[in-house]
Amino acid sequence: MRVAAFTKYDRQAASTRQRLLQFLPSLEAAGIAVDYHSLLGDGYVQGLVAGQRPSPAAVAGSYLRRLGQLLAPPDCDVIWVYAELFPFLPAQFERLAFLGGKPLIYDFDDAFFAAYQESPNALVRRGLGDKLEPLLRGAAACTCGNDYLRDYAARFCERTLVVPTVVDTGLYRPLGQIDGNGPPTIGWIGSPSTWVDVRPLLPLLSDLHRETGARFRAVGAGAAAAADRFEGLDLVDWSEAGEVAEVQAMDIGIMPVRDLPFQRGKSGYKLVQYMACGLPVVASPVGVNRQIVTEGVNGFLALDDGQWREALLQLIADAQLRRRMGQAGRRLVEDSYSLASQAPRLVELFQSVAASR
């Protein structure tokens, strides 16, 4: 079986690595060959991290290249689309995916529809609020990162299922024993686009450093985060080669999220990364976070500064609590959020869709 996959970004984007690339060995072992085409390359993502403005000419060239790929339908058995084919273009362009008459699997792990529907620009809301519906209505199946996204997709696609964003637990694993010596490190890993969710918590993290010595280590926040520096904040550039080691170097993982329509569609990937490495977590009770975090078992849910402070102080002070919660989180990831648990489901889906042509 041959699959033509269309992603928004290349491998430097977590969405491409976690929703497609990490599954390739399992798909290939089942006789499913995947040829993937990214719209925007790694240079585009690197520029965003560095705070650089994308080149309009380069972006236009990327769109034209994708247009050519779809106007000459790929030689494949199944088409796989992540997110959308042409961001900020009307729905008619998404319909090009069906030109060759191949069955299509649509995948998403963020509430991309909400970004259009909640846009402050009235023209965007009116013209693009329903732009993803043609892909969903025409798809043979839709895979969603969480229940919130499934509830949206199921309105248009009958065969809609949740495939959570997962990690390879052979790579993401706990590193050594928690000995409780010295102040722990509170950690966060993400991207410049999600750093905005962390900013409201920075004054509290600064206070905790002064009171307890606990440092805050932020991985992947981007160049703009330099303006947020305080004593006790360590800003670390993200790299694919180093991301696992960076998470393993943390003692507590955090995921603050604003309670907004787009954020409710987040798939909790940070929490999965932390838990796979045996870390206890503290997260906002938004979206799938409430499903991943069991209060007092593998972490805490914190609604306001008072709850964040209480949860972090408990974990800072108690190494054994961190260890117990980290072990519980690791078990959850192995059972439900691991590559080993989800790859067979994806293989079966591709085989089923191809067979129903």
Results as ranks from 00 to 15, higher is better:
1 M>A: 15
1 M>I: 11
13 A>P: 04
14 A>H: 00
16 T>A: 11
19 R>A: 07
23 F>H: 14
24 L>E: 11
25 P>R: 07
26 S>Q: 13
27 L>C: 14
29 A>Q: 14
30 A>V: 15
41 G>F: 09
50 A>Q: 15
56 P>W: 07
57 A>C: 08
58 A>V: 07
59 V>F: 10
62 S>N: 10
70 L>Y: 00
73 P>G: 11
78 V>I: 15
79 I>D: 09
79 I>A: 10
84 E>K: 02
86 F>D: 04
88 F>T: 04
89 L>V: 03
94 E>M: 03
94 E>I: 02
104 L>I: 07
104 L>F: 00
105 I>T: 01
106 Y>A: 03
106 Y>K: 00
111 A>K: 02
111 A>F: 03
112 F>I: 12
118 E>M: 12
120 P>E: 08
121 N>Q: 14
121 N>T: 13
124 V>C: 09
140 A>N: 01
145 G>F: 02
150 R>L: 15
154 A>Y: 02
156 F>Y: 12
180 G>E: 04
182 G>L: 13
187 G>E: 02
188 W>H: 05
189 I>A: 08
190 G>N: 02
198 V>G: 08
199 R>E: 15
201 L>R: 04
207 D>Y: 07
207 D>E: 14
209 H>P: 07
216 F>E: 06
219 V>L: 05
219 V>I: 12
221 A>H: 03
222 G>C: 09
223 A>D: 15
226 A>L: 12
226 A>P: 03
227 A>E: 15
229 R>L: 15
231 E>I: 08
231 E>Q: 11
238 W>D: 06
242 G>D: 14
247 V>E: 06
249 A>D: 13
253 G>H: 05
257 V>N: 09
260 L>N: 09
261 P>S: 08
265 G>E: 03
266 K>Q: 11
267 S>T: 15
269 Y>A: 09
284 S>W: 09
286 V>T: 05
294 T>L: 10
297 V>Q: 15
300 F>A: 08
311 A>Q: 08
316 I>N: 02
320 Q>A: 14
325 M>W: 03
328 A>T: 03
329 G>F: 01
331 R>P: 04
333 V>C: 07
338 S>I: 01
342 Q>N: 11
344 P>I: 14
348 E>Y: 07
349 L>C: 05
353 V>F: 05
356 S>A: 14
